[in-house]
Design a protein around this nucleic acid. Structure first.
Lengths: 173, 173
DNA sequence: CGTAAATTTCAGACATTCCTGAAATAACCG
DNA sequence: CGGTTATTTCAGGAATGTCTGAAATTTACG
């Protein structure tokens, strides 16, 4: 896997996007490289190609594995680890969304539930604020509930629905 | 607008979430405070309540205004600016999504288009990589196209569709 | 205008995150 | 085992991002 100008451009852009979404540049770049690579790559290869420290690659790969975006394979007669990214784009997207929901949205919902609970014995917080928190909680619960339902649908069904676009409303409504 | 323990908890959590999504803690905290506040607040009031520098509040409010999440109002007989956050949660969400799409997704699509274009005269990049880029581009174009359609739908229609959940598929399919 | 309040700018301090390189550990082979 | 290769850990340095406070600017009132 050579870093051709085209690949380089994708990798750099993806790294840039990563930092805007709370992922370190290295992690995002490695992910981009592995995503594009037709073959699994060794950590050494990645470090050399992207010109980043070998140790950095090691840590970043660990993180990508906890995100379930990257896995390890092996080649017979070779002791080194070969890394392989999830290639199905739809899969990549849902994996990332699932992860962020679990790590960020779900705890936020929990925090709002706690606040709503506490609010009952809380005389100093104005009612308008309590109401706003309640509305927020309701909204998030509705959104996450919807997301979970959607996630449970078979992909072809979902794709069909998406391709129908606004026509869905006409048929249903 | 007093910083009651409940409000404080929301503000701190929201600040935390902000930094995980590429927004500075101050900006996120100010947004949370303004979102919860029933009344518009002055910059001084915000600085005092959150114990952050007045200048920081000024810059953060500017950023929130470019995101169209916060606007200025005035009170007769008072020269100070009063700041007011968008209160409709649905509106807040779509405003944020629109902004991120415009700033991050659209440029990414453009980058992929450029790569796909360049790929035609590019002999060194393997075909498998070119194909992956093409697939990625196709996927993103489909997703953004769908998003734009959805965004154009009247909100009650969309809400109805969401509340139907998976039933939509049964009726349509 | 002159003055005072309100706001903004911005250089540099501070904090955080990220990355590196050396050392430690683990895995494997003969 | 001893030696070799692969991987991980981690302290500290580098880079980046964030925040502050003083000074400059703008705004509005008398």
């Amino acid at each position: 896997m050579k870093l051709t100008p085209t690949v380089e451009r994708c990798v750099l852009h993806w790294g840039e996007m990563g930092s805007r979404w709370g992922v370190s540049r290295s992690v995002a770049q490695i992910h981009a490289l592995l995503f594009l690579a037709p073959e699994p790559l060794t950590a050494d290869h990645i470090a050399e190609t992207l010109a980043i420290a070998r140790s950095n690659v090691s840590v970043s790969l660990k993180e990508l594995q906890t995100w379930e975006l990257v896995s390890i394979t092996h080649v017979i007669g070779d002791r080194r680890d070969y890394f392989l990214a999830r290639k199905d784009i739809w899969d990549v997207l849902t994996t990332i969304l699932d992860g962020r929901k679990r790590r960020e949205i779900d705890p936020t919902v929990q925090m709002l539930r706690d606040c709503a609970q506490e609010a009952k014995h809380d005389t100093e917080t104005p009612d308008q604020v309590k109401e706003r928190i309640a509305t927020m909680l309701e909204f998030l619960e509705e959104m996450t509930g919807w997301y979970d339902q959607i996630r449970g649908m078979p992909r072809p069904t979902l794709l069909k629905l998406m391709r129908m676009g606004t026509k869905v409303a006409k048929i249903v409504g």
